[in-house]
């Protein structure tokens, strides 16, 4: 389970998140919605441990802060790789390109990282398996021979994030506006894949989005509305439908 308690985050000295608390249980899907500038992406980066997103510590310095917990471990002081190794996976809105690092090689290194000590598939088995997974995502397997996200279209990048998610096999995933810039077919494919994988493997899903449309295929157990760095409302899937219709202006 991921537990966020009174999370306050500064970016460049400015407080963006002003005390956010929420929980995501294994296999549960929680949607975070909110207007531009509400702090949604800040939440994603702060959870993953990006150094620019600084957790504001409690004034009482005697108490060790416990703002972010995953599977009973406190992540607050951990570096991004340590958090990842606790089972946290961030699917990015803007995946970064690394030329010359082939997708195939990267994915296998990722697989080895998550399945150490000679367990699991050999390279040749892995290659066959990953091609199959790419096909299921409707991602052209030829892309696996290219540099990581290098010259990929928006849709291809997002699908590759999901392919990494499948290889990574996390406890908890954060989807940061994974639906932005996707055509309807790609959106559907990605959302359905995440829903299936999360259900099968009991992965907690925090899906950050502007729009209801992804939630039609990745059905949330709860919807949370973030505005001005605070949670202003929470409810069931109905809330997302209502927001799509009426906007955020009534959410206070």
């Amino acid at each position: 389970m991921m537990k966020i308690t009174n999370l306050r985050v500064n970016v460049g000295g400015k407080e963006i998140l002003k005390g956010v608390g929420l929980e995501v249980k294994p296999g549960e899907v929680v949607a975070v919605m909110g207007p531009n500038g509400s702090g949604k992406s800040t939440l994603a980066f702060a959870l993953a441990g990006h150094p620019k997103y600084e957790i504001v510590k409690s004034k009482n310095s005697k108490v060790k802060s416990k703002n972010i917990e995953l599977g009973g471990k406190v992540l607050d002081e951990m570096s991004p790789d340590e958090r990842a190794n606790e089972g946290l996976f961030l699917a990015n809105q803007y995946p970064v390109a690394i030329s010359g690092l082939t997708v195939n090689s990267f994915l296998y290194q990722l697989y080895k990282k998550r399945n150490p000590e000679g367990k699991g598939m050999k390279l040749i088995e892995f290659r066959a398996w990953i091609e199959k997974q790419a096909e299921l995502l409707e991602l052209n397997p030829d892309l696996l021979k290219r540099g990581l996200n290098d010259g990929f279209s928006g849709g291809e990048k997002k699908k590759l994030e999901i392919l990494q998610l499948i290889v990574f096999n996390p406890k908890q995933v954060i989807l940061d506006e994974i639906d932005s810039g996707l055509d309807v077919d790609a959106l559907k494919r990605i959302a359905k894949t995440v829903a299936l994988v999360a259900k099968q493997r009991k992965i907690g899903v925090l899906v950050i989005t502007h729009y209801n449309r992804i939630l039609k295929y990745l059905i949330p157990d709860r919807v949370i509305v973030l505005k001005g760095g605070l949670i202003v409302r929470s409810g069931t899937g109905e809330l997302a439908v209502k927001i799509e219709k009426d906007g955020y202006k009534n959410e206070n």
């Binding site: 993953a48 441990g49 990006h50 150094p51 620019k52 570096s79 991004p80 790789d81 958090r83 990842a84 190794n85 996976f89 961030l90 990015n92 995946p95 970064v96 690394i98 030329s99 010359g100 690092l101 082939t102 990267f106 290194q109 990722l110 990282k113 998550r114 540099g147 990581l148 990494q164 990574f168």
Partner: peptide, 29 residues
Amino acid sequence: GEEQLFYLMSRGFEEHEAEAMIVNGFIEP
């Protein structure tokens, strides 16, 4: 770039591993 490092580290690679991946990619051609 910090973003490249963060991206790879958020996949569980230590900083030096992430750097090596970027450098090896750079000279790959």
